[in-house]
Design a protein around this nucleic acid. Structure first.
Lengths: 220, 220
DNA sequence: ACTTGTATGTTTGATTTCAAACAAATGGAG
DNA sequence: CTCCATTTGTTTGAAATCAAACATACAAGT
């Protein structure tokens, strides 16, 4: 397991823990590494799980398949990324996503339930790990919350204004850079890039904002 | 505080705890009750907080206001509901919502940070509370995750199929009831009720499903 | 300067959604 | 049963979005 310590060290799940603490705490969560060959399932929609996965090498795809067989790729997990943590943290929940090895990969499985119910005495690392779990979960909610706020809006214009407004608040400035190019922004807001470009042009003509590439300036 | 124990008992945050445990654990989180008159702010967007709120009486509105002054009501918290828990659980995060008293109300403020960093020794109730917090957060992610899956779809038809597909999996049956009427379903999926009704009719004509009121049957 | 690749902006017609009004069906209450 | 309120389905013209193609701008490398 030691050969992967550099991967674990960078994960928010283990942040604030020393290498020794990480190695020690891996027992608390019954960490076991598994190898998956390209195309095999790691989790399957409909399953339930007490374990979350952390990618040690290779990569995995988070996908959804509907009743009529349409497959949709939600995201790609690379080295250091993890998946399944909300399902593992909520006993009895059912996976509504599947995880498939995109390339041959090694996955570290961590038993979240054991983290929560056993070792109740104050193993100090243990406490830190629980705190990190809470932080990871809370962070995900904040990100989702933001995204829902924007894509709930009916029109492209409203989605843009909602997103830009929130970025402006986040940067405490009317002038800021966004971490997306046009195509990525369109994907994030669930609209067409072309329609979005048209709307951005209109907003500029109307004097609500100025933009150049990924730099934006809002005019009130 | 005792007069509100019946409210606390029903909250998922305190589930599995006896009345005595609840009263005892309130100290761990520096529980203090505050009174707010109609229209005053409990949280304001841009603030950060270590505390979450739980409504003891009256009601509060979760709202968002954008840069150009448009106000949007996200949800209403009634007795027993709580708010702000992801912000309190993620130190340094900034509120992107405001909370306003809709009527005169009493709010119990719970310091989540204290729950995570102090009393590290195994006060048994304390552990349960942390576990409940993890569970509450994980549950919220699962709900958000679902919602994003559906409303990310571009067309009304795709949103419907995505939602119905997931409900079918959840009920392990092609035949099931949904917890929404048409207007609520349209709001949930962020589309027009009328356009949705049209699409449902088409889907039925095409033989993909049958529906009567809130009962649905999918045909494969 | 030239070429190449990529990002961004614009245009087009077809399709979908919106918004508003109205019609039909349903479920209670009297 | 009849009346009434509510829910659901349908229609309509206006507006927005989609999808695809093309035009323009910019950057990196030769």
């Amino acid at each position: 397991m030691k050969k992967y310590i550099s991967v674990l060290r960078t994960s928010p799940f283990f942040s604030g823990l020393t290498d020794e603490e990480i190695l020690s705490v891996l027992h608390c969560v019954s960490a076991t590494s598994i190898v998956k060959t390209e195309g095999t399932y790691i989790f399957r929609a409909g399953d339930s799980t007490e374990e979350m996965g952390l990618v040690l090498s290779g990569s995995a795809l988070i996908i959804q398949e509907d009743l009529w067989g349409h497959r949709n790729i939600l995201s790609r997990c690379k080295t250091g990324d993890f998946f399944g943590e909300p399902y593992a943290a909520k006993p009895g929940s059912v996976l509504n996503i599947s995880v498939v090895a995109e390339k041959d990969c090694e996955i570290l499985m961590l038993n979240v339930k054991r983290l929560l119910v056993t070792c109740p005495t104050a193993c100090d690392h243990h406490q830190k790990l629980v705190r990190n779990l809470v932080s990871v979960l809370a962070n995900k909610i904040l990100i989702f919350n933001d995204k829902i706020t924007h894509i709930s809006k009916r029109t492209t214009r409203e989605k843009l204004l909602s997103y830009l407004s929130s970025e402006s608040i986040k940067h405490s400035s009317l002038s800021f850079d966004i971490p997306f190019d046009r195509q990525q922004l369109a994907d994030f807001l669930c609209v067409e890039r072309a329609a979005m470009s048209v709307e951005l042009s209109k907003l500029q003509k109307e004097g609500l904002l100025k933009t150049n590439r990924n730099h934006f300036e809002l005019l009130t």
